[in-house]
Computed example of a mutant assay.
Amino acid sequence: MEALLVPALILVLVGVCVALAARAIGRRRQPRQEEAPQPGRNSAELARAAAARLDQEQHRRLYALIAQGQAMAAIKLYLEVTGEGLRASRDAVGALAAHPQPFRPPEAPGQPVDDEDDDAPQRFPYRYRAIASRGDVTREVSSNMLNDEIYGRIRTLARNGDSEAAATALTRHSDISLKQAREFIALLED
């Protein structure tokens, strides 16, 4: 009886090893859900959907953090206010930084959709001063059509390498020429 015990244990051990190997191979062939490529991960659609989940104060705070370069704090804020997971929050904040979105109040049912330009300049009751400098060169833009949110979007565009869009946005929200805006944006680029 003892003579059969050793070969039986070897057979059981080989069977377990074969089962584990088959299971590992089966897992490799099945694409994992979290590793599956997500279409449009940093797309404008994701940014619009992410912005729609925020109220006006949360939207302002999130873009202030993005403009200050505090990505981790922005992700944490988005995670807290929306209840999304860490990966979804990271993707949403990345999309919001890459594709800045204006705040849009929730639409009431039955209300007509306003197709008017959302980035149209509005005048604020104060003058906002934006200052950029590098070395001995300093430029200042003062306008009552700028605020933290708009300037943050302009800085984000400049830092993402879209200097022409940033300069155009700056001219729309101030009274400076496109040449002056390009000079200002050149100082913002890192």
Rank of each mutant, 00 (worst) to 15 (best):
L4T: 07
L4F: 07
L4Y: 04
L5A: 15
L5N: 05
L5G: 00
V6K: 02
P7Q: 03
P7A: 01
P7V: 02
L9V: 12
I10Q: 09
V12D: 01
V12P: 02
L13V: 09
V14N: 03
G15F: 12
G15D: 08
C17G: 13
C17N: 07
C17Q: 13
V18T: 12
A19Q: 11
A19L: 14
A19D: 09
L20N: 06
L20G: 05
A21F: 13
A21Y: 08
A21N: 12
A22H: 02
A22V: 10
A22N: 06
A22R: 14
A22G: 08
R23M: 13
R23V: 12
R23K: 14
I25C: 10
I25S: 10
R27S: 09
R28I: 07
R29G: 07
R29T: 01
R29C: 04
Q30C: 03
Q30T: 15
Q30N: 10
P31V: 10
Q33G: 01
E34L: 14
E34M: 03
E35V: 02
E35H: 13
A36C: 06
A36M: 14
A36Q: 14
P37E: 13
Q38V: 15
G40T: 05
G40W: 01
R41K: 12
R41E: 12
N42V: 06
N42S: 11
A44Q: 08
A44L: 13
A44Y: 04
A44N: 02
A44V: 10
L46V: 08
A47L: 08
A47F: 00
R48A: 14
A49G: 11
A49E: 15
A49L: 10
A51P: 01
A52G: 06
R53V: 05
L54H: 04
L54E: 05
